[in-house]
Simulated assay, not measured.
Amino acid sequence: MYTNAIDVLEFDASTAQRAQYEAVDFELEAPGLVIVRNESHENADEHSYGVNVESGIPVAFECPSDTYHKGACKHRVAIVIRETVLEAATEYEGDQEPDVAPDGGTIIERSAACEQ
């Protein structure tokens, strides 16, 4: 379903590496809008950017890197390489909270049986 998104974005090996190893947090703000916060920075709130996802492709929105560098920024690449985040941003309808963990995995709710 989203296998072509990574082929659509143009980015270099350095950007791909940073998107993989830097600690990032994802928040689905609204349908098609993912807030990506770089938790690797001391002031993470100052390194938080909104990324629009249109038709399954993260497009530029707020990141200064998209203005000054050729190719996609690490924030857009970070979304693409975490399929669950990309799917949630594309399918999010706004009337329910999607279950996506900060690392891109799925949040699993503990059942009452597990609590006992």
Rank of each mutant, 00 (worst) to 15 (best):
E29G: 03
Q116C: 13
D99F: 06
R37G: 02
V53F: 02
A19I: 12
S111L: 14
T67P: 00
I35E: 06
H69S: 12
R82A: 09
A23E: 13
S48A: 12
N4S: 13
N52S: 14
M1S: 08
Q20R: 15
I6N: 11
A113C: 10
E109M: 13
V34H: 02
D45E: 15
R110E: 08
G104V: 04
H41N: 12
N38M: 07
Y68P: 03
E54S: 11
M1Q: 05
E42K: 14
E54I: 13
G105K: 14
N4Y: 07
M1H: 09
V100N: 02
D45Y: 13
A112R: 12
G56L: 08
G104T: 02
L28E: 00
S40I: 08
A89S: 09
Q96Y: 15
N38G: 08
F61N: 12
T3K: 04
L9P: 05
S55Q: 13
R82V: 02
E29F: 13
L9I: 11
V53G: 00
H47V: 00
D103K: 01
E29K: 13
A89V: 04
R18V: 04
Q17K: 07
I79S: 06
C63L: 11
E62L: 09
V51L: 07
L33D: 08
I35W: 04
C114E: 13
E10V: 03
Q20G: 10
P64Y: 04
L33W: 06
P31I: 08
G104I: 03
